[in-house]
Design a protein around this nucleic acid. Structure first.
Lengths: 209, 209
DNA sequence: CACTTTATTAACAATGTTGTTAATAAAATT
DNA sequence: AATTTTATTAACAACATTGTTAATAAAGTG
């Protein structure tokens, strides 16, 4: 029964997450967070000393999520390279689908306070540091065998990131455009996923030698 | 010689543009803008009544830029469809290259205040409203002739937007990662442009029937 | 030149926002 | 049960930020 102690703390965290995701650090109001969490705003400062600290907690959590996803993207398997990449794109798309706010959140906060990039960098290199070189070797070998087009792993990575993340970055625009009367967002996502996979696959198809 | 009247106004506008681009509306400070413009901060309110109005001025200007670029992207020419698209992707990439802050600016401000989307929407439909349907017809005809793969114009548009805009969205991250010791950003951009064109071209290549 | 409008300044008002504190209640610990 | 630690509240302090005002100078206009 010591759980109800965390109740309020948890409520604050959840409200803060929403607020920071939506409005960014600068636009977020601790009073608003407290109100939405259903606690007095002194409570917020009791649990999380300052706005900055509350933010950092959420920022780190979010970055952690990003890190974990990176491991997932290019996890080893015995499938042929092309299949592996296809799986990776799909996995990455699904991840963003489940965390649609994540790209803008990170970009926005790093742009307005570049110091914050340190954390992002660390997390990325921790989780995906070695993977890129291994990946590149895989690519090189497959290219030599004529399975795929010769390509830089980092290039393909940016392709995938761009294609998968961007639609979610502008999704709020879409939603505003559609006036929320778009029940078939899911269908749009499915189509997008296929389109992105298709693009990457075609990119990798060896041109006839 | 009545130009020096506008001098301060102009200085404020320029400082404000920088500030809003970098920190967003919420993070921007009118005092900071005034200071950077080299004017007293009462001056700012003299010329632009409120922060909101100053922002709107810049927001509209920026949206206008976006609008003008859209007209440029798919301007008619007598080249074959594939060439036209190639040109479009290149044009669009160059435009973002010259306005690298624009994508994040618009996305950020619309997300934190969705009302602002109205303006974006109007500008887009004003400038690219008819174009999309014409484009689609072009595509359909070309597809029928077997010149290109059958594809939705909107799909291709989002592909292009994603590939071209995203690298600039995360460019600040890049820059932080490289610690500014990257003089060859230009080379990166050239490579990116080629990569994006390549991706779109391959997407459009008809699979052997 | 008289006067009206525009530009500019410094000081200040109003408000919103973050963070604190002192008092109190509840829970845990001994 | 006494005491210490944790939770909670309401009021408030401190500060930053936006916006105003009243006084003054400069420029333009009849």
């Amino acid at each position: 029964m010591t759980k109800h102690i965390n109740n309020k703390e948890q409520a604050i965290l959840e409200a803060a997450t929403l607020e920071f995701f939506e409005k960014g650090y600068d636009g977020a109001r601790t009073t608003s967070i407290a109100r939405n969490a259903g606690v007095t705003h002194a409570m917020l400062h009791y649990y999380f000393k300052t706005k900055e600290q509350l933010f950092e907690r959420i920022f780190k959590e979010t970055i952690g999520l990003l890190g974990k996803s990176l491991i997932g993207v290019f996890t080893g398997s015995d499938k042929p390279v092309l299949e592996k990449i296809k799986d990776a794109v799909e996995f990455h798309f699904n991840f963003i689908c489940e965390n649609p706010h994540l790209p803008l959140f990170i970009i926005r906060e790093v742009v307005s306070r570049p110091e914050r990039f340190k954390l992002v960098k660390e997390t990325i290199s921790e989780n995906a540091g070695g993977l890129m070189t291994i990946l590149q070797q895989d690519f090189d070998k497959a290219a030599e065998r004529g399975e795929i087009e010769n390509v830089e792993a980092s290039t393909l990575m940016l392709d995938m990131l761009s294609l998968n993340a961007f639609p979610f970055l502008i999704q709020p625009l879409f939603q505003a455009a559609m006036g929320n009367r778009l029940g078939n967002v899911d269908k749009f996502y499915e189509t997008r996923k296929k389109e992105n996979i298709e693009l990457i696959m075609r990119r990798l198809t060896p041109s006839k030698s």
